[in-house]
Design a binder for these strands. Structure first.
Lengths: 173, 173
DNA sequence: CAAATTTGTGAGTGATTACTCACTTACTTT
DNA sequence: AAAGTAAGTGAGTAATCACTCACAAATTTG
């Protein structure tokens, strides 16, 4: 991948995440990335193709995270890691997730395939801990994490740490 | 308010909610509402003005809900009502909330003024019930409700009732 | 009833959109 | 070094965008 390709992807992800896919024009992306507009279409075929490439890269990064979860077998540790996830994101992850969350609301593009495997792990973990309704418990925790991710992505609250500890405490961690 | 005005507002809210503010053109709104495009601008000045009018109406409807919460003084009942909120929406409320939630992700328009008063009520309720950290508890519940509202608005899950009862059960209700 | 105001139309506006294309420049391969 | 391929440019395109405006129809007011 060329330097300019990487630059286009990086700038586009940041702009899409901050302002929304529809609100950012290919001409603005080209200017911000110091690249001719034509190059975007040479490499990514269309604006949608550019978005697809961004999502593809992010998806692969997420799968890396999942692998480390898979190797963990202590149920308490699995739950702890899931709860901690939204609280430690670097800037690139931050942009990716913000983009992904904003795309949920665009017509019919919602995709829950990312959280589905995590739900499986959580269900197993709650079952091992003898929770009454492990699947429902996993769904509820995931929904809570979705809410937490949303507030972190949108509001960057100051007392994230207190919130995290409070949630961990609710699950005796 | 004219019939055509109401029609414009209703159609625009539905389209904005389903496809996003940027993705819907004034020309499409006019066609869907069987109205000339000029009329939209005569009544609402700009596309942004149309959005503002929609949000204004929704805001007023929400304030009605808050009033009934205010009159409730049993802490358990307050918490129960907050938890039940996202599970009973009529179609118009559904469109309004979906629009509001999608707008969160547009650049810098996020507005938490709607949930702020609810947070106050909840904090008081948790305090009355001798929870250790009533404010943190209220924040956490609101974040969970935000996550639940998101899944209801996006996925319309089949077993909403089981989820609701599970959450109520977590708060001994 | 007449005047005035409001409601409504539809053809137009310049600006911006995603995208194309003929072309040059840089790098690889033989 | 010659030929072939990939990277990159920038001016152009038709379509669509939000918005305006001169005007007509309907309604309200004096």
């Amino acid at each position: 991948m060329t330097e300019k390709q990487k630059e286009i992807l990086s700038i586009a992800m940041e702009l899409f995440a901050k302002e929304g896919f529809d609100a950012v024009s290919t001409s603005r992306i080209a200017k911000s990335a110091n690249v001719s507009e034509g190059l975007i279409f040479k490499h990514f075929k269309s604006k949608q193709g550019l978005l697809d490439a961004i999502l593809q890269l992010g998806q692969e990064a997420v799968e890396g995270l999942l692998t480390s979860l898979k190797e963990e077998d202590s149920p308490k540790e699995i739950i702890r890691q899931v709860i901690q996830m939204p609280f430690d994101m670097d800037e690139e992850q931050y942009h990716f997730w913000r983009l992904l969350y904003s795309l949920k609301w665009q017509a019919d593009v919602y995709d829950e395939s990312i959280s589905e495997p995590i739900k499986e792990f959580l269900t197993q973990a709650f079952r091992k801990l003898n929770y009454g309704h492990p699947k429902l418990e996993a769904e509820t925790l995931l929904i809570l994490m979705d809410g937490i991710a949303t507030t972190v992505l949108l509001k960057k609250p100051k007392n994230q740490n207190r919130l995290m500890k409070h949630v961990l405490n609710k699950y005796n961690l």
